[in-house]
Design a protein around this nucleic acid. Sequence first.
DNA 1: ACAAGCTATTGACGATTCGTCAACAAAAAA
DNA 2: TTTTTTGTTGACGAATCGTCAATAGCTTGT
Lengths: 192, 192
Amino acid sequence: MDPAPKRMSTEARRRQLLAFGREHFAQHGFEAMPMDAIAEHAGVSKGLLYHYFGDQRGFYMETVRGVTDEVIATIEPPSDQAFEDAFRTMVTRFVQYVQTHRAIYRALVRGGLGSDTEVNALLDRVRVTSMERILERLGVGEPSSLSRIAIYGWVSLVENSCAEWTEADGVSPDELVELFTSAFQPILEVLN
Amino acid sequence: MDPAPKRMSTEARRRQLLAFGREHFAQHGFEAMPMDAIAEHAGVSKGLLYHYFGDQRGFYMETVRGVTDEVIATIEPPSDQAFEDAFRTMVTRFVQYVQTHRAIYRALVRGGLGSDTEVNALLDRVRVTSMERILERLGVGEPSSLSRIAIYGWVSLVENSCAEWTEADGVSPDELVELFTSAFQPILEVLN
DNA sequence: ACAAGCTATTGACGATTCGTCAACAAAAAA
DNA sequence: TTTTTTGTTGACGAATCGTCAATAGCTTGT
């Protein structure tokens, strides 16, 4: 695939492998594919993957974490806006992220890494972070059980609607943002 | 575990193995567990599992299908009610199902069989069936892309809220039904 | 009661994949 | 050049999948 220098610095090699992993998973999903084959496509030996990432799960984890961290950074709500505006900014940025990173996002939520408990925890971290940021901006200290369930549900709605969106045609980002915003109103009624 | 008769009729053995599988997955989730070990716990040989279900995926599939078919049958909306009532009946029955089958339901949506494309298709069948029934009752023939996305999102909200609910305390079924009903109103605005 | 036939059931087997590790080789240091 | 460091490899053992000929329990016929 690449000229693939025979020997690279630890950091450079690591970045290269993670970049390849991201691209690979975006195209092929996280379906079971032997580490041998992945390594071959990446132009290195299987042993090298294990050397850098410990085990298969480790490679998946680091790749996924790269994406989830990116998402979390993207939807950081601006601190100089009132709630309604900050909320809309978060949602808008999220939708834009999905639009810009269609393939990898779909692989993330549809590619089926739910099987792995640890990897799934990374996905849940995005959801929980979103929840906490919203609750914090609303000044809700200790949300009730119902509040948590309601917000979690809304976040899931956003997540899965976006996943479907990546396979649909003719729906603009604005329409999605509008949908998510209006869907949040009944949730707001319930919070604490 | 059981007295485990040495030889059973094909149908009886099949039912017994599926019942065991359901119980096993409810308790342990669908985490990777060797077929050898599963067979041992079930009191049969590994070969027998393969004989009845073809392969590992086949065993998972049949077990999951048992549950998904049950869910689909449960939320069949009554045909003699107006939409609002039929809708509420569907949601209520669904919530009751989750309450009654906590363990297996959580395993279903959290146990991580998303990894497998085919098994995931079974889960999606529940969502799609729900969507179609609602759309049909509303008299929506060919839903727009946005409509599909919106309803799919709402179904995901219900699904994931319920999954969280199985791990939470102090939230009544009625509160959930109320939440889901109010969360549906903005969706209704968008449909076609 | 016994033999013969049917079929539910088994466990050993080859194939595939995971993860390890001692050996190798390319760059840097002396 | 020689030595040292360390990025890299491929062969290996362990674990698991899925197969299949052999086995053993039930049924039928006499």
